[in-house]
Nucleic acid binder design. Structure first.
Length: 570
RNA sequence: UGGGGUGUCGCCAAGUGGUAAGGCAUCAGGUUCUGGCCCUGACAUUCCGAGGUUCGAAUCCUUGCACCCCAGCCA
């Protein structure tokens, strides 16, 4: 049914190519991946790409091989920033996207093992306790073009290292006093290999392990070990970790015999998702939320999963989008129009059609009997959506139409209402504008029209009526608040400035609130989360937090494509 | 001036020596009780540039160029 075929057949991206090779060479008999967020913030659509890749791979290969899995693992190695609240939000988002993990893990589950392995590295002369200060460490590291130099503590004996490391664990030192480092090569061209830190002292409680530890492993040490312990086969991450891969391999290689890992995981990097007209970095999202530029993590203007969910965007359209975008290694920025296409494509099949007038203009149909009310049958679905169902919409002498559907001096290609012009009312009659009533200021405040009783369900005879407009009965419609959402930024990309520079690019019209909209009677029963197409306008959702009977609030998910508006811009 | 990556249509992206897929966007028509959907057609003689190998190159070689990442006791 869905018109959008995947842009590229499955199995065609480089990750799947690698996996297929591995399978064929019998290096693995199943695929085990993991999605490893740090629980220090909310997920956004960039994470969705990674989620779809990792969980999608497990689903796909399980189908093919009978087994394969994807773990959800919280990468909780920095107690200062992480929190259980974020873990809950992340789990909700992954589930909402339509995925279920084969096991929930924490890097902190393995702290004891990691410690044991660290002692082993010390024993093997592969790690040492370094007592350089923060500033000295930086100085000794050298630069990108000049080699670093060995720490004066590099040649401490195994016994001394072990003693110091145990005292580190026992809490005998203050934060920053010592650190455990891998003994690799201070002149390595790859900066990540210049005796990288493995452990640092942090007298901070951890949300999972409490006060048990005061030393915490670094990402580069914890990640490969976590992967290896869990039997991960393909450890997929983003491009900025390419330089870390050498260290990832070093950790595994130096521990695998001792630790007897169930797998020899390999890291592969792909390009993270970027979208224009929005921001994706954790820092900028945080700034928007904390600076109150948006209402919270679930503000519908945000590209967070929570925000998109509240905006009314479906999980399926996000999944389709991710699959359309593909997986590759070139840095890229996807056009927001591509996401919008996926949203419309999905909702076209799912959202019942309904009528709502955002900016009401009163119309009195002078030749329609006063007091008469007809219940007209209006289908919820257009001819091209194979679904059944309709509702009665009341029609009487006074109705509201959209202010934009009337022009005092319309151009000839304006297929709507104007003085003396005739237009079709959707699901109802054709009306002709006979009079325009203005206020003292000259604003059009009311239209007087006549209707043709012969045009209900039939075309007028002897003339062609080109336009059809939506409307709502004056007496039977309900008032609603409508929140018109649009792109977060008015610029494709935020200006390349520092820090808060991007705030200047925020689109002031990213949220326009309309209080006096009128929606058709049937919408009075809508439930929070219900999605509709307001005909000729766009897709809307009853707000999950604020909408309730008697106080209807609708969020615009996305507009309909509007070739009229586009032609007018030219 | 080091190392690791990437460069195919406005935006994504296939292509793995045999003569440039597809999607989005755009444009032109058709259809239409949504200026929506849908349908039809158009849209890279060319693959960052320059040389070379070959009957044949986006794919191989040489050499330039551009952009991204790495100098957190973040991930």
């Amino acid at each position: 049914m869905n018109s959008s075929a995947p842009a590229t057949p499955k199995g065609s991206d480089f990750i799947r190519d690698i996996i297929n090779d591995d399978l064929e060479a019998q290096r693995h008999s199943q695929v085990i991946t993991r999605f490893p967020p740090e629980p220090n913030g909310f997920l956004h659509i960039g994470h969705a790409k990674s989620i779809c890749l990792n969980f999608g791979l497990a689903v796909e290969y399980k189908e093919r091989l009978g087994k394969s899995r994807c773990h959800l693992r919280f990468d909780d190695t920095d107690p200062a920033k992480e929190d259980t609240l974020f873990e809950e939000g992340i789990q909700e988002d992954v589930r909402w996207l339509g995925f279920e993990w084969d096991g929930l893990y924490h890097a902190s589950d393995y702290f004891e093992k990691m410690y044991e392995y660290a002692e082993h590295l010390i024993g093997a002369g592969k790690a040492y306790v370094c007592s350089l200060s923060d500033a000295e460490t930086k100085e000794y590291r050298g630069t990108v073009t000049t080699p670093g130099k060995n720490s004066p503590y590099r040649d401490r004996s195994v016994e001394e290292n072990l003693d110091l490391f145990r005292k580190m664990r026992a809490g005998e030192f203050k934060d920053g006093e010592h650190v455990l480092r891998a003994k690799i090569d201070m002149s390595a061209a790859n900066m990540k290999m210049r005796d990288p830190m493995l452990y640092r002292i942090r007298h901070t409680a951890h949300h999972m392990t409490g006060d048990k530890w005061c030393i915490y492993p670094m990402y580069d040490y914890a990640h490969p070990i976590s992967d290896a312990i869990e039997g991960i086969t393909h450890s997929i991450c983003t491009l900025e970790f390419e330089n870390n891969r050498e260290l990832y391999d070093w950790v595994i290689d130096n521990l695998i015999d001792f630790a007897k890992f169930p797998s020899r995981p390999k890291q592969y990097e792909f390009a993270r998702l970027n979208l224009n007209y929005t921001v994706m970095s954790k820092r900028r999202l945080l700034e928007l939320v904390e600076g109150k530029h948006v209402s919270g993590w679930d503000d519908p203007r945000l590209p967070t999963i929570a925000g998109m969910r509240r905006r009314g965007i479906t999980a399926e359209s996000i999944r389709n989008f991710c699959s359309m975008v593909g997986v590759a290694k070139a840095n890229s920025t996807v056009d927001m129009a591509q996401l919008e296409f996926c949203i419309r494509d999905d909702l076209n099949q799912k959202a019942p059609r309904v009528m709502a007038v955002l900016k009401p203009l009163k119309v009195v149909i002078e030749n329609y009997p006063e007091g008469k009310v007809e219940e007209l049958d209006a289908s919820y679905w257009p001819h091209d959506v194979p679904k059944e169902g309709s509702r009665p919409v009341p029609f009487s002498r006074e109705i509201f139409i959209e202010q934009d559907d009337f022009m005092l001096e319309p151009p000839k290609d304006f297929y709507r209402l104007g003085p003396g012009k005739e237009v079709r009312l959707r699901y109802a009659y054709c009306i002709t504008c006979t009079d325009v009533i203005k206020d003292e200021a000259g604003n059009v405040v009311e239209l007087r029209c006549t209707y043709d009783p012969e045009t209900l369900g039939a075309n007028p005879v002897g003339r062609k009526v080109k336009g059809t407009i939506h409307w709502v009965d004056a007496a039977h419609s309900q008032e609603a608040e409508v929140r018109l959402y649009d792109r977060l930024l008015s610029l494709e990309a935020p200006p390349v400035g520092k820090d808060s520079e991007f705030l200047k690019a925020i689109n002031p019209e990213a949220l326009v609130t309309i209080k006096g909209a009128r929606v058709e009677r049937s919408l009075g029963e809508s439930k929070p989360g219900d999605r509709f197409q307001f005909e000729r306008q766009g897709y809307f959702v009853a707000d999950s937090k604020d909408s309730k009977p008697g106080n209807l609030v609708f969020n615009r998910i996305v507009t309909l494509k509007d070739s009229w508006a586009r032609s007018q811009k030219k």
